[in-house]
Amino acid sequence: MKRSINLGYLGVLSAMMLPSLALAADPSKLSGIGDSISQGWGANNLPGEHPEFGFGQGTDATVNSLFLRYKAKNAAMTKEFVSVSGAEMVGGRNNGPGQAARICAMAVKPDRVVIELGGNDVCSRDKGSSSDATSNLYSVTTYRNALKTTLDTLAGCLPSGAQVQVLSMPRVDYLFNAGNAKNVITCNLVWSVAGVCRVVTGESSASRRQSIGDRINQYNDGLRAEVESAATRHAGKITVITDWQGKDVSNSSVGTYRFGKDDIDGFDCFHPHKDTGQRKLACAAWEAAEYGSLANVPSCLK
């Protein structure tokens, strides 16, 4: 009798503890792998990095970043981003796997990681050949293997229950369109002088720019396949998610969002502005993660 009472007591106690356990599982640290968009480059129309306006790590109320949204859930939430302006998923020292290794070297590992890369994988390539605008772009296999290495590296060090969100790659040809809508003379002058994403901004053929956009869609299809593969491979350890839902539904993800003239900065016409583009990215990333709904992403991107 005494034994059964005790068991019953433990059962009640366990039931009472469930909410506490759930709270303990709430995210406590956010990290980010990314490029100049994550670093809030030019987000306030001034050159340079302004991470306070970044969609992931920002502290500005207007942007209402992922960090601030998590912090609203858990006031003790912390952040430590390793994003680097100019970074690619594939190339260079600051690529996805390299940044993932830096997260693994952190004293306190994050339990939420957002990955925003890809624009420079396209923009840092030389223009393609006369017959193929994509001849100097990475193959989809190359992109996928870099992402796979990034996710496997993170899975090897993140705490159990961690979540990694891989945002789809933005269409840089849409950014080109947005810049032209904003100020065709000024933006094209800046792009030319500063060498901004010349693979599209220096491309006069609309069909060749479209073929680059098509390659980005293929990257994003590959991204989703790699995310699903990693989610299966690391099931029970971490969750891996993405916002990409396919190319056919406009504004259903970062990768399909058609940036408008008001979404981009007034300095180099190629980075999201804090009041618009960055804010929308934050909303989309939030809705694509555990507290939101993918169905709400289009409303973020209006």
């Binding site: 594939v90 190339g91 260079g92 020292r93 690529n95 796997p97 390299g98 290794a101 990475y138 190359t142 870099a146 290495t149």
Partner: peptide, 10 residues
């Protein structure tokens, strides 16, 4: 595209 696995530099 080759990556050095010690640094992931490519």
């Amino acid at each position: 595209t080759l990556a050095d696995t010690s640094s992931w530099d490519t």
